[in-house]
Amino acid sequence: MAAIVFGATLLCGSCVSERKTENTSHSASGQVAADTVQYQVAQYKDFSPYLSGTEEAVDSTIFSARYPIFAEEINNLVKNAIFVDGEQHVEQVSESFLAGFNEYAEEQIDGGNASINAWYKHQNCRVVLNEHGILTLQNAINDYTGGAHGMEVELWFNFDLQEKKLLQLTDIVADNAALLPIAERYFRQHENLADTASYGPSYFFEENNFTLAANFGLTKEGLLFHYNPYEIKSYAEGPTTFVIPYAELKDTLTSKGKKLVSEITAVN
């Protein structure tokens, strides 16, 4: 595809007020429950000035992001969950990504190569749980920077807003040894594997032993674990997500975990 230089980038941003989860809007009275935090959803797009294409079709390299904006104190707490490479704001993420493509495009043009493949990076950080001082964020990042295919990852973050901390699994589960067989049972159910079936070459578990995903989320339905592509399966097999109902975990939880689960599962 021929390289075309376009003289301007486009930036568009918008904010939408939301609360609880992103499928829940404000009530008619505008009142927000005391155990939830208010936030807005920001949307951002920017493009590289270097376009690929022909007179009939033009392709552009794009960065886009959708993410929640909270009050400053909470923004500071969750910032690393939204800007996962340590950036301070969305413009930095965009500038870094587009600068990488622009350098590639200029090298191709200087080398006389008219074929430039467009890149993309889309980031969608979503509020999954926002109740009783517990905030769960799911950050889905989908990008392509050349090669046979792009890459999609999903990162989960759980925060205790009262203690102002990112929750670790050890904050919730006291007995990891007891959790493991429960998790494996639900994993096997999800994968339609018999209890005695070997994982074999289809899975990347070391020495054929089941291991928990580092990625976990507190949801209304239960404790969620998520494996990204290449973690336990090939890219073609895609990601794997399974959920353990909280009732199954009652004997493995810390005192804090029991309190959190009690609040999450309370009838609103």
Rank of each mutant, 00 (worst) to 15 (best):
A105D: 04
N23Y: 08
N142A: 07
T145V: 14
P201A: 07
S60N: 08
L166W: 10
N75A: 10
Q88K: 11
N228E: 08
C12W: 13
T36M: 12
H132S: 15
A34G: 14
T9S: 14
I69H: 03
G238C: 07
G100S: 13
G133W: 05
K220C: 02
L193R: 03
P245V: 10
K259F: 11
G13N: 14
D59W: 11
R126E: 15
A33P: 02
G200K: 04
S198D: 13
N113M: 02
Y246L: 04
Q189F: 01
F210I: 10
E163W: 02
T136Y: 12
R185C: 02
G147N: 07
T252C: 15
S25T: 14
I109G: 04
L51C: 11
Y246W: 09
S94A: 15
L180M: 14
A148T: 07
Y235P: 03
G133D: 05
L10M: 06
Q38L: 14
D251V: 07
L51D: 02
V173D: 00
Y246N: 02
Q38I: 09
L193M: 15
L129K: 02
T61G: 08
N102V: 09
L167N: 01
V93G: 01
T21P: 01
L166D: 03
T252G: 00
K164Q: 15
S60L: 07
Q31L: 13
Q123M: 15
E184Y: 09
E103H: 14
P181S: 11
H26R: 11
G111S: 10
F225M: 09
Y186M: 10
C15F: 12
V127R: 00
Q138Y: 08
N124P: 00
N228Y: 00
F70Q: 01
L77H: 06
F225D: 05
A34F: 06
T254D: 04
L137Y: 09
A81H: 05
E103Y: 13
E95H: 12
Y50H: 10
G100T: 04
V32Q: 02
G86I: 08
L161T: 08
Y120K: 10
Q168W: 04
F157A: 10
